[in-house]
Simulated assay, not measured.
Amino acid sequence: MAKISDKSITKLNSKKGLKYFLLDETMTPLKAVKLLNYETKLKKLQVELRKLQEWVENNDEKVVILFEGRDAAGKGGAIRRITQHLNPREFRVVALPKPTEEEQGEWYFQRYINNLPRKGKIVFFDRSWYNRAVVEPVNGFCTQEEYNIFMNQVNDFERMLIESGTRLIKFYFSISKNEQLKRFEDIKSSPLKKWKFSKVDQNAIKLWDSYTDYKNKMFEKTNTEISPWIIIKANRKSQARIEAMQQVLNLLPYNE
Rank of each mutant, 00 (worst) to 15 (best):
A2L: 09
I4D: 01
L12R: 00
L12H: 01
G17Q: 01
L23A: 04
L23T: 12
L23F: 05
T26F: 02
M27A: 07
M27P: 04
L30I: 14
K31V: 12
L35N: 10
L36G: 04
E39R: 14
T40A: 07
T40F: 07
K41L: 12
K43L: 10
L49N: 10
R50H: 06
R50P: 04
K51D: 11
E54N: 14
N58L: 14
E61F: 05
K62N: 05
K62Q: 10
V63W: 00
L66K: 08
F67K: 01
E68A: 03
G69S: 08
D71I: 10
A73G: 12
G76K: 11
G77P: 08
A78D: 04
A78P: 04
A78Q: 08
R80L: 14
H85M: 13
N87D: 15
P88H: 09
P88L: 03
R89Q: 14
F91S: 01
A95Y: 05
P99K: 13
G105C: 06
Q110L: 10
Y112V: 08
Y112M: 08
R118P: 06
I122G: 07
F124R: 01
S128I: 01
Y130F: 10
V134M: 04
V134C: 07
P137I: 12
F141E: 02
C142Y: 11
C142E: 08
T143W: 10
Q144V: 07
Q144E: 10
Q144R: 13
N148A: 14
I149Q: 14
Q153D: 12
V154S: 08
F157C: 09
R159K: 14
L161D: 02
I162Y: 02
R167Y: 01
Y172L: 03
S174V: 05
I175F: 15
N178A: 11
F184Q: 10
F184K: 12
F184H: 13
I187N: 08
K194M: 04
K199Q: 11
K199C: 00
V200N: 05
W208P: 09
D209R: 01
D209F: 00
S210Y: 00
Y211N: 08
N216Y: 11
M218T: 11
F219K: 05
F219L: 12
E220A: 07
E220I: 00
I230P: 05
I231P: 01
S238D: 15
Q239H: 13
I242V: 13
M245D: 07
L249G: 11
N250K: 15
N250G: 01
L251G: 02
L252I: 13
P253N: 03
N255K: 07
